[in-house]
Nucleic acid binder design. Structure first.
Length: 883
RNA sequence: GGGCGGUUAACUCAGCUGGUAGAGUGUCAUCUUGACGUGGUGAAAGUCGUAGGUUCGAGUCCUAUACCGCCCACCA
């Protein structure tokens, strides 16, 4: 009955079954329960049409570990999942899809297109959710949300209107980043700067009614078509006389003023700058200061507008080429230099972004950023790792207004209406019947949609029903921790913080856990274009979700990028296999019937107390590390305990009792094996949920049908320091004996007597009680004791231990030259240690200033090493004189 | 131009508040012992980037510096 685990660990046999069981039985559903403390995590919503990549796998594994752990600790733990409509990216996909069918956006019209987009969303929207389930995420699917849900859309409109009414959302003509490919405005955060080799051109602008001229420098010569001035620094002696005069714009023959403005850097270029107010942020500001007006020379698709005269219709780079040629032909080009420059690209499609003036909607950032900075300064917001706090502060301190309108159709349409008669702007959730100003009835809604991040910014509370005062909102908000990649601090983290402070009056979360990037084995970013991405699902298919999860959270540190190695997945799969087989071993040896894990403390033997005491420590350390978000360290502690202490030592030590005749001892061993195994499974469960649950369900006498029920507790009364000391001594002795035998090439099967020479009663008793350990684990035939080493002879191997020496009579097998070499090595090691300890102890400063405890320890070490060295030397002497 | 991270065993990385350097993988040797060869046992392998400093004591703190990488930034 008990031995019913299959012989080999095969995760495919049970992962899916267990997930469905958990999910169907409602264990992931969080309940508002005033008797419990809430613990809340909002899942960063992946793109609704996306599919799972390693980044998702990493941060969802971390969230799952935290939420499972807290659930086991007794919290009412909510992990709310959902997806994001991802306006710009989804729209682009849908456009491609209909294009393949020979259709266009314009052809379909707004409503038709949105219908297509919903269809697409419904078709692909479940893909990533199903993939997350394979990973084992224990999120509450009954609370699944989508950013375009009715409720969330309502929250978006509510926030927009509130901000508008407070004057924090406004409409204006400003320089924005325009993507000529996506054909929409994008925010500063969506522009990626990349240094590129380019040119800087020096161009001569003639001065009107004069032979004189002024030379300017530019990296974007095509924008000269829109030049409305030349600016120089007011203090620049070179140009003082020219200020106030008029220059003639080459190619266009437009008269433009020469103005003085201290924005100009005298040292850069020629010290004279062409001013194109409609196509450059700085120029826009200079233009405003000098009343220059606007001249837009580029269309939305990146071609030259009618304002560009004979260059009209040319693509922007073609125009640049033609303009430079023409300038050269007409003698205006002074020189062309190589120049490196940071060029802005669209984060979505990598097209070079064009700064241009446009009428857009903005969020006024300064009043929102201030509270966000103050909250951080008060220490209410923690970043893990801390260093990302600086990134947060730096961004907020230099923030500019946020352009939130997008010329897209897929998303939240602005709740803004215009009166066609008087132009009045009305902001409202529903279309007004009459103009609030002129009472006219010709009213139309703004065509733009909002930046996707405007809705994601509300995620921590919009998902809980805000602006309604729901029970969920009252109980689960604010959330506890946000787990996400450091690459979206600007896009998302900061925007959630200020949105929540503004709307809810408090932070959306206390802690922000930032993960690094998962890179390929050569350290490259995984990307579609490189084709170096590793599909988490393939890993799960081959090695199981548990191995993948463990790989992602061990061996690296929060916020650092990691390389993904198949070898590590394999190693972790092997670990799972190890646990699987250890569990099989336990089950095979359990006798049926009684409740086995309740041991009687009085009946515990040395190794039982040792493993229980060690388990106690591991529980404490693992919990402490989880508390500090040191997930990798916690996992490492548990791994080491399972493999090194439970499997390699405890199980081996206990075997003789299981196969022996002492029924009581056997029963205690079984109880402890099971007791420790159960806690091991619980400790490991958040990390490896599937295998632990599967094994759990095969164990007898469980207090709960599911392992998710409780987290092991540290128990003071189960600390046994004396037993730990005794077993540590035994382990060291066994290792030393094994080592000596292996160095002498003595087969494990070749047994010998082991004669322990010691006059230390305590050590003697430890060894005597541990006889069976030496018989089973150190190839001893029989152990004997001797008060002194008289009569030991020089034909034995001798292993020197602390306060003890062991002789292994293996006469005919010993190569004494080899034994001398081995002891020489031993001697050198000891001498190095003694030298080090002596160095410390003879240092006056150390003895006086170091803590007493440390000094005492060093003294003990000194005595120990000296004693051991003495024995080694005696042996060496004896061996050498005998040869 | 600012800011940040990395530099520790052949490879990939841990090493939290300073007190004799650890793991996984790989390598070598060995073992069909009644859970596991996806295993057991043992071994070899590190001047902790460099130079200073603080300290009785530094991989760990401070200051420089080199190399690699990342982020931010309106010098046209």
């Amino acid at each position: 009955m008990l031995e019913n685990l299959p012989k080999t660990y095969n995760p495919k046999d049970f992962e899916e079954r267990l997930y469905n069981y958990w999910n169907d039985s409602g264990h992931f559903i969080a309940h508002v329960d005033e008797n419990k403390k809430p613990y809340t995590i909002m899942m960063p919503p992946p793109n609704v049409t996306g599919s799972l990549h390693m980044g998702h796998a990493l941060n969802n594994t971390i969230q799952d570990i935290l939420i499972r752990w807290k659930r086991m600790e007794g919290y009412s733990a909510l992990w709310l999942p959902g997806t994001d409509h991802a306006s710009i990216s989804t729209e682009a996909r849908v456009v491609n899809k209909i294009k393949a069918e020979g259709k266009t956006k314009e052809g379909l019209g707004r409503e038709g297109f949105i219908e297509e987009a919903w269809e697409w969303t419904h078709k692909y929207g479940n893909t990533i959710k199903n993939q997350l389930k394979k990973l084992g995420v224990s999120s509450d699917w009954t609370r699944d949300r989508f950013t375009l849900d009715e409720g969330l859309s309502n929250a978006v409109e509510e926030v927009f209107i509130r901000l508008y009414e407070k004057g924090l959302v406004y409409r204006g003509d400003r320089i924005i980043n325009w993507c000529p490919s996506c054909m929409t405005a994008i925010s500063d955060a969506e522009v990626e700067h990349e240094d590129q080799d380019g040119h800087i051109w020096h161009i001569r602008y003639p001065i009107k009614d004069s032979e004189d001229y002024i030379i300017i420098a530019t990296t974007r010569p095509e924008t000269m078509l829109g030049d409305l001035a030349i600016a120089v620094h007011p203090e620049d002696e070179r140009y003082k006389e020219l200020v106030g005069k008029t220059a003639i714009l080459p190619l266009m023959n437009r008269e433009i003023p020469i103005v003085a403005d201290d924005y100009v850097e005298m040292e850069f270029g020629t010290g004279a700058v062409k001013i194109t107010p409609s196509h450059d942020l700085n120029d826009f500001e200079v233009g405003a200061r000098h009343g220059l007006g606007q001249c837009i020379i580029m269309n939305e698709n990146g071609t030259i507008s009618p304002e560009g005269n004979i260059y009209q219709g040319l693509e922007r780079y073609e125009a640049r080429k033609r303009i430079v040629e023409d300038l050269e032909k007409q003698g205006f080009l002074v020189e062309t230099k190589e120049h490196q420059n940071a060029i802005g690209h669209c984060e979505r499609c990598s097209t070079v972004v064009e700064p241009l003036i446009s009428k857009q909607w903005f969020v006024k950032m300064e009043p929102l950023a201030r509270p966000a900075l103050e909250a951080y300064d008060r220490g209410e917001l923690n970043f893990i790792p801390e260093r990302f706090g600086k990134v947060y502060v730096n961004w907020l301190e230099n923030i500019r207004d946020w352009c939130i309108s997008r010329q897209l159709w897929w998303g939240h349409r602005l709740p803004v209406y215009y009166c066609d008669d008087c132009g009045e702007i009305m902001v409202s959730k529903t279309k007004p019947h009459n103009c609030s100003k002129c009472n006219g009835v010709n009213i139309h809604q703004d065509n733009d949609t909002l930046d996707t991040w405007f809705s994601s910014a509300l995620w921590p509370f919009s998902t809980l029903g805000w602006p309604e005062k729901t029970e969920d909102l009252g109980y689960f908000f604010p959330t506890d921790v946000l787990v996400t990649g450091y690459d979206i601090i600007f896009f998302w983290v900061i925007r959630m913080v200020f949105s929540s402070l503004e709307q809810m009056g408090e932070l959306p979360f206390k802690d922000v856990f930032l993960t690094g990037l998962v890179r390929d084995s050569e350290g490259r970013k995984m990307s579609k274009s490189l084709g170096n991405g590793i599909d988490p699902l393939e890993i799960i298919e081959e090695y199981g979700a548990d191995a993948l999860r463990f790989t992602l959270v061990t061996g690296n540190t929060p916020g650092n990028d990691m390389r993904f190695y198949m070898e590590r997945v394999e190693a972790n799969r092997n670990f799972a296999n190890k646990l699987w087989n250890a569990s099989r071993f336990v089950l095979m040896n359990l006798e049926e019937g009684i409740e086995k894990s309740q041991f009687d403390v009085e009946k515990l033997e040395e190794e039982d107390r040792w493993i229980i005491s060690r388990l106690n420590t591991v529980i404490k350390e693992a919990t402490e590390n989880l508390d500090k978000y040191e997930i990798g360290l916690a996992a490492g502690r548990i791994y080491d305990f399972i493999w090194d202490e439970y499997c390699d030592w405890y199980i081996e030590m206990v075997k003789s009792r299981l196969y022996g005749d002492d029924v009581s001892s056997k029963e205690t061993a079984e109880q402890v094996l099971l007791y420790v195994l159960k806690d091991i499974l619980k400790l490991l469960h958040p990390f490896m949920p599937f295998i632990t649950e599967e094994i759990w369900q095969h164990l007898p006498g469980n207090d709960s049908p599911l392992i998710l029920s409780s987290w092991p507790e540290y128990k003071n009364e189960l600390d046994f320091p004396d037993s730990e000391g005794a077993i540590e001594f035994i382990k060291t002795a066994i290792k030393s004996i094994r080592n000596a035998r292996a160095e002498m090439n003595i087969a494990q099967s070749k047994k010998s007597n082991q004669i322990f020479v010691t006059d230390d009663e305590k050590i003697k008793s430890i060894i005597a009680k541990g006889e069976r350990y030496f018989l089973n684990l150190a190839s001893a035939d029989e152990i004997e004791f001797s008060e002194n080493k008289e009569g030991m002879g020089e034909d034995n191997i001798s292993v020197v231990l602390d306060r003890c020496e062991v002789y292994l009579p293996l006469k005919e097998l010993i190569d004494f030259e080899k034994e001398i070499d081995r002891l020489e090595k031993e001697k050198e090691k000891l001498e190095v240690e003694i030298k080090r300890v002596n160095g410390k102890l003879s240092n006056d400063g150390f003895v006086k200033k170091a803590p007493e405890k440390v000094v005492l320890e060093e003294r003990k070490k000194k005595d120990k090493y000296e004693e051991m060295l003495e024995k080694v030397l005696e042996r060496l002497e004896g061996l050498k004189s005998n040869r």
